[in-house]
Write a protein that binds this DNA or RNA. Structure first.
Lengths: 117, 117
DNA sequence: CAGCATCCAGGTTGATACTG
DNA sequence: CAGTATCAACCTGGATGCTG
């Protein structure tokens, strides 16, 4: 989203320094949550692509890079042929799983059969 | 986002019936979280617009309508002149506040000084 | 195998003007 | 006061083809 605002406008800090919003931004990608969920176990790239049906390589890479930048996941490259890359959760990533579980519980109770959107 | 997939593809249910993702979708607007937060107390439209600095009427209306559709908030219209509309949390909305608080706690610990994105 | 580069389509946000 | 309507801008996600 637009992190830039015009000069002389409401300063960005005033609206963006909300830790809740920060958290939301970390998981705001279309596939981030599902990726995080599967990464409770260490997974390889191709494995993830199979576990997250419908995602393309490009997007998977992109989402993984963002999660990595946000220090949610670890990317371990093995210097082998053929290439092998393993992804796993960082401590920050692990510590987020309980929140995901809370969201799941809440979702089961409050978002039953929404056919719209 | 594209909720449709080609015929003969991976069925949508398989990827979309995740309660965690459902939950994420409910709060996925740029301002939803802040709005929800301020609605812990009943607020009027103009009041919300002042509390959420930088949001325009149109967008505020839009986000409120979506939250209402997701049964997170209640919209109460008073038949007065000038018009008066009050927004408040539903039970579902109330029950989401603890999760927001968890996200806030997590955010304070794990998203400190992210200047990027 | 695990990417990257490019281009494109759609959705979401935002600015502005008008209304009951 | 609390919207609605319209249009433009931006961002994200997705498809495809190429590479070490």
């Amino acid at each position: 989203m637009a992190r830039t605002s015009f000069e002389g406008e409401i300063p960005v800090e005033q609206i963006e320094v909300c830790p809740v919003t920060d958290t939301q931004n970390v998981i705001a990608g279309k596939w981030k949550i599902i990726i995080l969920w599967h990464l409770r176990q260490t997974r390889r790239f191709g494995e993830l692509q199979r576990l997250v049906p419908g995602i393309s390589k490009g997007i998977l890479t992109h989402q993984l890079r963002e999660l990595e930048a946000d220090q949610m996941i670890l990317r371990k490259v093995y210097a082998e042929v053929p290439p092998k890359v393993e992804y796993s959760l960082t401590d920050a990533g692990e510590s987020f799983i309980p929140i995901l579980e809370s969201m799941g519980e809440w979702g089961k109770k409050h978002t039953a059969n929404k056919t719209n959107r």
